[in-house]
Simulated scan of single mutants.
Amino acid sequence: MKIKDMIICSLFAALMAVGANVAPFLTIGGIPITLQLLFAILAGGLLGSRLGSLAMGLYLLLGLIGAPVFAQFRGGIGSILSPTFGYVISFIFVAYVVGKLLEKESVSRVHYISAGMLAIIVNYIIGTNYTYFALTFWAEAPEGFSYIVAWSWMGAYLPIDIGVTIFALIMVPKLKKALNYRPEVKQKAA
């Protein structure tokens, strides 16, 4: 791995830490917002699947070893027990999926739309299922909690996540051009 790639992966891990902790300052309609999905999509779109997921993995590792990079400036191995920890895990897969779809030489609008839809789907499937299992098995679930309730909670976040995803995908080609950063993508042997 090149030093430039290590630096940019570290930068995205740092951006995730900032994005995780903007919620006290950024609320839309009473819903606290983090910018983690934005930075996970940007990591995949700009760095490609390998480096994007590596950057998100670095963020996860930093938090687990105790750096206060998760939401509400939390960190440590105990974070695994948080009902929302599944979303943190999902960012690795979000970056990978977005990167895979956008690291081709010619990328069409269909690739961008697919990348955005898959980013949200991956984020919600991993995160919401983790939340459900955490609240069911080791955390205290609210009265009347069910699998359907866990998914219905996501309805409040969906419009915001769609907006964040669209913004991220509009920014990817502009940032690629402005930064002139092209990670090496391993080509299949002929």
Rank of each mutant, 00 (worst) to 15 (best):
L158H: 02
I121G: 08
Y87P: 06
Y112P: 04
L51D: 07
I31K: 13
A71S: 11
T27V: 15
F39Q: 11
L35D: 03
G57E: 07
G99E: 03
N129F: 12
A168R: 01
Y130A: 12
S146Q: 03
A150M: 09
V18T: 03
V97W: 00
L169Q: 07
Y112E: 01
F12M: 08
K186Y: 11
G155V: 06
A23L: 10
P83W: 09
R74V: 00
A23S: 12
L42C: 12
I126N: 00
S10L: 08
Y147M: 15
Y132S: 05
I148F: 14
P83C: 12
F133A: 06
S79H: 00
S82M: 13
T165H: 08
G78F: 00
I92G: 04
G163M: 05
P83N: 10
F70M: 00
L62S: 08
A156E: 02
V98P: 05
L102C: 10
G45W: 07
Y112K: 14
Y147Q: 05
R50M: 06
I33R: 06
L58W: 05
T131A: 14
F91R: 00
F145N: 06
A14N: 05
P159N: 12
A139H: 11
I8H: 02
A17W: 08
S90Q: 11
K100Y: 04
P32S: 12
A40Q: 00
L179I: 03
L169G: 09
K100R: 15
Q187C: 11
L179D: 01
G144P: 11
L179F: 06
V149E: 08
S146W: 00
L11A: 08
L81W: 11
E184G: 12
L64V: 01
A168I: 05
S90F: 12
S108W: 01
G66S: 07
A141V: 13
S90A: 15
I113P: 05
I148D: 08
Y96C: 09
A20K: 03
T27W: 15
I31G: 04
D161Q: 04
P32W: 10
W138E: 04
L37A: 06
L61V: 15
L175I: 05
L175M: 14
S53H: 08
A139E: 13
L179P: 04
G45P: 09
F70Y: 00
A23E: 07
V94T: 07
F145P: 05
F12P: 08
G66P: 11
